[in-house]
Amino acid sequence: MTTLTAVPASAAVRRPRIRNRYLRGLATPRGVIGLALVGLVLAVGLAAPLLTSYDPDFQTADALVSPGTGDHLWGTDEIGRDLLSRLLYGIRSDVLVVLAAVPIAALVGCGLALLATAHRAADVAVQRLFDLLLSFPGLILGLTVTAIMGVGRGTIIVVIALVETPAFGRLLRGAILVHRDREYAVAARVGGAGPLRLLTRHVLPNAADPVVVHVALAMSVAVILEGAMSFIGIGIRPPEASLGSTLAASRPYLEDHPAYALGPLAVITALVVGLNLIAEALNRGARR
């Protein structure tokens, strides 16, 4: 009779309260703060028409008024447009770019990764393509693509997709190669699973972790890159509202009208920090 028997077997392998490992990761302080930051920005962007009565392009007679003057909650810019409206509609235009570009990058990158792991010759070609794309820093790629395609929303989407495709591709390729040789995969193969079933039922569910984590990181890179391109004038161009172009326009008024710059600065920071917290939370959840 040993004391060991007193410990119920179930205690050692107690089921976690939340079974999905991503949700479990998100249900930590880190994940909740990240979700709250990103959710708040998304919510005010979605609710833009409810939160402000001004059209973002409408020029009123009051230029550069401080926050709280009249019915301009966040003041106006140098040609009398309502800054709160510019900010909220800027969020919309940014989110649109991010939500278009990141799924494209994820799909193309993962598709190429599947191709690369299926065939040796394809692997060499895909790897060289990724090397080539990764040898350009994001903004230099942005300048090059803009020189070819011209300025516009489509260009930014292409640039972000080109920057993030190799990241997704490399992550999934590496993970598939690791998991394909794990014992459980070998066992499944011995047990008679065909290549397709092995991939979809056994390898991919386990290899997907780094890709899922990277979605959040890619979104933060997309926010930063979109902001940078619009900021230097090769992204979304005025008069259309975007966070980057509003920030660029606010530069001369930093001293007299700091609220002008504070809006886009706060939103970009909230998005980037929030997305990174989410990525870290997902990563920890997946590793446990």
Binding site: L143, A147, F231, G233
Partner: peptide, 30 residues
């Protein structure tokens, strides 16, 4: 590479008369 790419944006923030501003003009006007 990151430094050079970043310089393009940072030059715009600090009105630094470098390649960044030139790049922006040349690219938008082809």
């Amino acid at each position: 590479g990151v430094l050079l790419g970043g310089a393009v944006v940072i030059e715009a923030v600090f009105a630094w008369p470098g390649l960044g501003t030139l790049a922006e003009q040349a690219v938008t006007r082809r």
